[in-house]
Amino acid sequence: MALTREQLAQRVAQEFQDGYYINLGIGIPTLAANYVPAGIEVMLQSENGLLGMGPFPREDEVDPDLINAGKQTVTMARGASIFSSADSFAMIRGGHVDLTVLGAFEVDCQGNIASYMIPGKLIKGMGGAMDLVAGADNIIVTMTHASKHGESKLLSECTLPLTGKGCIKRVLTDLALLDIENGKFILRERAPGVSVEEIASLTAGALVIPEHVPEMSVQ
């Protein structure tokens, strides 16, 4: 079975390590904050200028001066700090954020990512995504492995305009966890009940299949 949104979030959170500063993109990445493994502390960076993002506020805590990068009202965690957008992207571009998780339309086996624009459709903008993929060393892209029509989104070369070039090393889809090394996808894990053959048939870019591909451990 393909992973649900919650299971994708769970698997993302397994990458969290104690003491990590993490930037989570809008959507599934944000959900991962609900699955921080017991016994570790992480601090969430919101690129509009908050390090140490807390949960959504209770009704009486709502503050229009305190939002996240998705423009949602949030709270601050203990030990939080506030800074300007220039400082925020200095920490992102400067490589100080330990892990970045964001979504994409397409990824290719050269590590390229396309996530912000579909020509001919409405263009809303890249927000902070280009800075995040250019600045971070440790990035996980979360996405569906193929379109509803069964067309692979893991390509030999992205067809859409790029968000970043040669910057992606790890992709988590609803079917598999893959690394990108030397121009190839490496199949690391498969979703529970999903066969290697199914993953291979839905991966358009070059794919290396190790002898043993374990199932992910998700609830």
Binding site: S85, A86, S88, F89, I92, G125, G128, M130
Partner: peptide, 15 residues
């Protein structure tokens, strides 16, 4: 006319 600029680049252009 719209000139889309990455968020961090926009902040740094102003800075």
């Amino acid at each position: 006319e719209v000139e889309l600029t990455p968020q961090g680049t926009l902040a740094e252009k102003m800075r």
